Structures are given as C-alpha cells and as structure tokens.
Computed example of a mutant assay.
Amino acid sequence: MAGLAKGYRKVEVKLSWDPAPVGAPNHDLDLIAATYTAAAPSGPPTYLVHFDSRSPDGTIILNRDSHDGRGFGADEVLTLDLYRVPETLTRVVIGVAIQQHAGRLAFGEVARPVVSLHEGYTVLARHELTTLPESTAATVAEFVRESGGRWLFTSEARGYDADPVEFGRVMGEG
C-alpha cells in the first residue's frame, strides 16, 4: 500500500525574530530555498528563492519578507507547493541567512530567532536558531522526491559561517 501514500504536498516555512535593541542596526534574517535536480543533487542550486524572488513556475514563493523583525506573527513566510514542483527537481533545501550589513551578526546575537515548518495545522519541525550561536546561516529542512513522486522530509538545523550569497552557493552540500 505504499503507493497510496501522498507524502508532503504543501508546506509553509515561518521565520520570526524580535527586533534589534533601540539604536542598534536592524537584524535582517532571510528564508532561502535552494532547488536541485537528480543529475545535480548538490553543489550550486538550480535556482534560489529568497527576498524579491520566487520559483520560475510559482511553486515556491516568499509570501512575506521582513527587514527588521517588527510585526505580529511570522516575519517571513515561504510556501512550497511540492505537489506542483516540476519532476526535474528532486531536492529542495530550506535555510535561513542573516544579512551582514553592519558587520558580522550571528544567531546568538539575535533575540528569539525561530523557524518552523507546517503542513496545514501540523507542525513538522521547529528550530530555535540560538542553538547555533556562532552561525550566520543555517539549513533547517530538506525535501527529497522519491522515484514514485512522493516527497520525504528531514529536518536538522546545521550552522554555517557564511554571508547570504556564499550560503546560497553551499547550502546544498553534504
């Protein structure tokens, strides 16, 4: 009966953090999704979805983008319509990177950075990024398509010391 299993279909990734202290530069965190094909499952991504972008086919969209962590609820929201992702793409890696505008800033210096993944009302995973205090970026989830088309999900927070541009290049390694 494994052929009847649907796997993951539509997932929301939510990122929130508290604003920087008064008088300090804004803390600007970003959700990033990297896509890969079966022929090139790691290394440079096929494409990235991040602030001011979406997937070419509209299956991965950043719905909300914050530059300072102010506001109610999630500061950034990324939606993955996995059931519509082209069959040529077989892996999607989700990460978080801190913009480094005013010097090096790590997760341990940001108040309450939390990323969570949801399918409907079900929480799939939740990571408090302060557990990676020296890191400036982190991968938090990976979706891999099985040969039958079903998406599998794993979630582990893995820290990087990279700015957002470098992180986008290396987040699919390993």
Results as ranks from 00 to 15, higher is better:
111 A>Y: 15
102 A>M: 04
132 L>K: 12
127 H>L: 01
103 G>R: 13
69 G>A: 03
151 W>H: 08
72 F>C: 08
62 L>Q: 10
155 S>T: 03
141 A>S: 03
65 D>S: 09
68 D>R: 08
73 G>E: 13
152 L>R: 12
142 E>N: 06
163 D>Y: 03
83 Y>V: 13
151 W>S: 06
141 A>V: 01
79 T>K: 01
112 R>Q: 14
73 G>I: 05
134 E>M: 09
72 F>K: 10
66 S>W: 06
85 V>F: 11
76 E>C: 06
73 G>R: 13
139 T>P: 01
77 V>H: 03
123 V>F: 12
99 Q>E: 09
142 E>Y: 07
71 G>H: 13
87 E>W: 13
133 P>G: 04
89 L>Q: 01
99 Q>N: 14
98 I>R: 02
81 D>A: 15
73 G>N: 06
113 P>D: 08
151 W>Q: 05
139 T>F: 02
137 A>C: 11
75 D>R: 08
132 L>H: 08
143 F>R: 00
98 I>Q: 02
134 E>A: 07
62 L>F: 12
131 T>Q: 15
122 T>G: 09
65 D>I: 01
91 R>A: 07
129 L>M: 01
125 A>W: 00
87 E>Y: 12
79 T>P: 01
65 D>H: 05
109 E>L: 14
135 S>T: 05
158 R>M: 10
112 R>M: 08
109 E>A: 13
126 R>K: 11
107 F>R: 00
102 A>Q: 07
96 V>G: 00
69 G>H: 00
136 T>V: 09
65 D>W: 00
66 S>G: 04
148 G>D: 15
143 F>Y: 02
135 S>A: 15
110 V>S: 01
138 A>T: 02
119 E>D: 09
124 L>D: 06
147 S>K: 13
117 L>C: 07
105 L>N: 05
67 H>R: 08
95 G>D: 07
157 A>E: 04
161 D>A: 13
146 E>N: 15
140 V>D: 01
74 A>G: 06
94 I>H: 03
104 R>V: 03
137 A>D: 06
129 L>W: 02
102 A>K: 04
110 V>Q: 00
117 L>N: 04
80 L>E: 02
97 A>Q: 07
131 T>I: 09
151 W>C: 09
88 T>W: 11
158 R>Q: 08
93 V>M: 05
91 R>Y: 07
146 E>I: 06
110 V>C: 02
64 R>S: 04
159 G>S: 02
110 V>F: 00
91 R>L: 12
104 R>D: 04
64 R>K: 11
150 R>L: 10
160 Y>M: 04
160 Y>S: 03
108 G>R: 11
95 G>I: 03
162 A>D: 04
